[in-house]
Computed example of a mutant assay.
Amino acid sequence: MRLDELSAGMNAVIDHIETRTADDIVARRLGELGFVPGEPVKVVAVGPFGGDPMAVKIGFTRFALRRTEAARVILKERA
Score class of each variant (00 low, 15 high):
R2H: 12
R2S: 15
R2C: 08
R2Q: 14
L3E: 05
D4K: 03
D4I: 00
E5C: 08
E5V: 01
L6F: 05
L6D: 01
S7P: 03
S7L: 14
G9T: 07
M10P: 03
N11A: 10
N11D: 15
N11K: 10
A12F: 07
V13W: 03
V13C: 10
I14K: 01
I14H: 01
D15K: 12
D15S: 14
D15N: 11
I17H: 07
I17S: 07
I17R: 03
E18T: 12
E18M: 11
T19F: 07
R20S: 11
T21A: 11
D23N: 15
I25G: 05
I25A: 14
I25T: 13
I25P: 06
I25D: 13
V26S: 09
R28C: 07
R29N: 15
R29K: 15
R29A: 15
L30C: 08
G31F: 03
E32H: 08
E32C: 06
L33G: 06
G34M: 02
V36N: 13
V36R: 15
P37H: 09
P37A: 11
E39C: 09
E39K: 10
P40Q: 04
V41K: 00
V41T: 01
K42S: 11
K42M: 15
V43N: 01
G47R: 11
F49S: 08
F49C: 01
G50P: 06
G50H: 02
G51R: 00
D52Y: 02
M54R: 00
A55P: 02
V56T: 06
V56S: 03
K57R: 15
K57W: 02
T61D: 09
T61E: 09
R62L: 00
R62K: 12
F63G: 03
F63S: 03
A64M: 06
A64D: 05
L65Q: 11
R66H: 14
R66W: 13
R66K: 14
R66A: 15
R66Y: 10
R67E: 02
E69T: 13
E69Q: 14
A70G: 05
A70H: 00
A71P: 01
A71Y: 00
R72E: 08
R72Y: 06
R72Q: 11
V73I: 14
V73Q: 02
I74Q: 10
L75S: 07
L75A: 09
L75H: 09
K76M: 15
K76H: 08
E77V: 05
A79M: 09
A79V: 08
A79C: 07
